[in-house]
Design a protein around this nucleic acid. Structure first.
Length: 230
DNA sequence: CGAGTTTGACCTGCGC
DNA sequence: GCGCAGGTCAAACTCG
């Protein structure tokens, strides 16, 4: 299970796109209650497709500066065919820009499926044997697309910028951040969508080994779910 | 002075 | 093998 904080400053009614390639369900957890934001169909045998969640937060109160951040909650699911991902990513505005990144994600998904299948069944499906695996195992990643004036959204964690790069065919640079917590190797990338500069794309990579660095008045909701934070 | 940012150089993987 | 583009490093710089 994965929990991800929704950045503060997210307004009610604001469209928020979420791509969760490891999940088939997305919830927002608010004050101990969860609100399903979207899902995509699950086929047979741990199979599913990635999707864009394009729901508004109509049932969630607007988030103010002093509010605790609600969480995105999702359940893992496993892809069936590499081709499914390739075709699904083709229509995505993000992945049309970053084909190589999409390929990384696809391979990550396939590796994940292979691992889970091995865990559950102890058997590697024949068709999975044909899929080449990358030498470097990448951490699972989440990609948020939010409409915001500020590039770096407050997600409860403390980040240090370690690089900035101009991406080809885009007018906005991509920034690279690392979590400042010792021994925590979580990274995130922040960039603006080329087609719509109002949209901020935030990509998280890896799992936090600690709770968010909130102030002393940590919320109940935060502590309730702290074991599941990224 | 320490923490965080900037930015050019360097490294690495992918596609041809 | 080579070139390109993305990702990372690290020294210099800024700011509180």
């Amino acid at each position: 299970m994965i929990l991800l904080p929704i950045p503060k400053g997210t307004d009610r009614g604001q469209s928020m796109h979420v791509l969760v390639y490891t999940s088939n369900l997305i919830y927002s957890v608010w004050n101990g209650r969860s609100y399903q934001l979207g899902f995509f169909p699950v086929h047979t045998n741990f199979t599913s497709l990635p999707f864009w969640c394009n729901k508004t937060f109509a049932t969630i109160p607007p988030l103010q500066e002093d509010d605790e951040a609600p969480l995105l909650y999702s359940e893992p699911v496993i892809p069936k065919q590499k081709e499914e991902f390739t075709s699904s990513f083709a229509g995505s505005p993000i992945f049309s820009l970053q084909k190589s990144s999409a390929n990384y994600w696809i391979n990550d998904c396939m590796n994940m499926k292979r691992n889970i299948v091995n865990e559950n069944l102890g058997v590697l499906p024949i068709n999975m044997k044909k899929i080449k695996s990358r030498k470097k195992v990448r951490e699972p990643r989440f990609c948020f697309k939010t409409m915001s004036d500020v590039d770096v959204l407050d997600d409860g964690y403390k980040w240090r910028k370690y690089g900035q790069k101009v991406v080809k065919n885009t007018q906005h640079p991509r920034s690279y951040y690392r979590c400042t917590q010792d021994n925590c190797r979580v990274k995130k990338r922040v960039e603006r969508l080329a087609e719509d500069s109002r949209m901020v794309i935030t990509t998280y990579e890896g799992r936090h080994i600690h709770s968010p660095s909130h102030d002393e008045e940590d919320s109940q909701a935060s502590s309730q779910f702290k074991n599941f934070f990224w």
